[in-house]
């Protein structure tokens, strides 16, 4: 039973990690129907920014929790700027062309950012400080859970609720929903679609950066390539949950995380990826638009 609970907690942590990234994929797809392959790289840049800031702050002698908060905020702002610029440089000019052009542009952006960080920083894995302080009471629980896992789970829940609120109840959220339904019509009705798209990229990039900081603090090391691996899994999670749907991205992430964790724990971790992709295939066979995705309505 204890073993089972440990696997569940491991799966939930994984799920939250995927969710923080999958949210960005799904939001961008929902608005402009673009799979932003460079999203993982924004996550990686967030982690690098946080590392640099954290090292600078630790020289000033701040304590762990304030370093975590300041480093996360700076990383989020910095990555949001990257996301904003990326959309203006790489996606806006090709928005009216074939969808394939934007996709190629996204892959190019991903390669560019990876290699930029590799050359500007280093190709080696570098240690990432443990920013989340130890919480003593966790030792008394019957299951193995550490403070980083608790923080990741908590922050994912908060981000998801905040995003749902933003999209359901605010003016910009209303504009987002309008733009995702019909961009031309929304524009005719006075919605500033360019601004809506920029805001989407800014929010998606900021959540990715937050994910980057939390996950790196949990895994303890980063390099320029971490965005690719995590990005692929998050993308799978977003498709699994129904790409374009925010609750779907979170649900898909948890399904994926739990499947991997239980599969690795009870059968073999050798086949971890097999379980991940098997569940993807099964769900897409049963529900082609994903768990919570809207069915494709073809425009005639």
């Amino acid at each position: 039973m204890n073993y089972f609970l440990n696997l569940i907690i491991g799966g939930l942590t994984r799920g939250s990690i995927y969710a923080l990234l999958a949210l960005g994929y799904t939001m961008v797809y929902g608005i402009i129907e673009l799979i932003n392959f460079a999203h993982g790289e924004i996550y990686m840049i967030g982690a690098f920014t946080a590392l640099i800031v954290a090292l600078a702050l630790s020289y000033l002698g701040l304590d762990g929790i304030s370093i975590l908060i300041i480093a996360s905020l700076i990383a989020m702002v910095y990555s949001a700027a990257y996301g904003f610029t990326m959309e203006k440089i790489a996606y806006k000019p090709v928005r009216k062309s074939l969808r394939l052009s934007a996709l190629i542009s996204a892959i190019g952006m991903s390669l560019f950012l990876q290699n930029y960080v590799r050359l500007a920083q280093t190709s080696n894995f570098i240690p990432f400080p443990t920013l989340v302080p130890e919480m003593g009471f966790l030792q008394t629980l019957p299951v193995r859970i550490n403070s980083a896992q608790v923080v990741i789970l908590g922050i994912t829940a908060i981000v998801m609720v905040a995003l749902t609120f933003l999209i359901k109840f605010t003016r910009i959220g209303k504009s987002m929903r309008a733009a995702s339904q019909d961009k031309t019509m929304a524009m005719l009705l006075g919605v500033n679609v360019n601004r809506v798209i920029s805001v989407t990229f800014v929010i998606g990039s900021a959540t990715a950066a937050l994910g980057g900081v939390l996950i790196s603090s949990f895994t303890g090391q980063i390099n320029f390539y971490i965005g690719f691996m995590a990005g692929i899994k998050a993308f799978v999670a977003a498709v699994l949950g129904g790409i374009g749907s925010i609750p779907g991205a979170v649900l898909g992430s948890f399904v994926l995380g739990l499947t991997e964790s239980l599969g690795a724990g009870y059968i073999s971790s050798d086949y971890e990826d097999v379980f991940a992709f098997a569940i993807l295939i099964i769900i897409l066979l049963l529900k082609p638009s994903g768990l919570l995705g809207r069915p494709e309505n073809k425009k005639v």
Partner: peptide, 9 residues
Amino acid sequence: VDYSAIIAR
């Protein structure tokens, strides 16, 4: 990202 399942085993 996480090896907790294999470590549990």
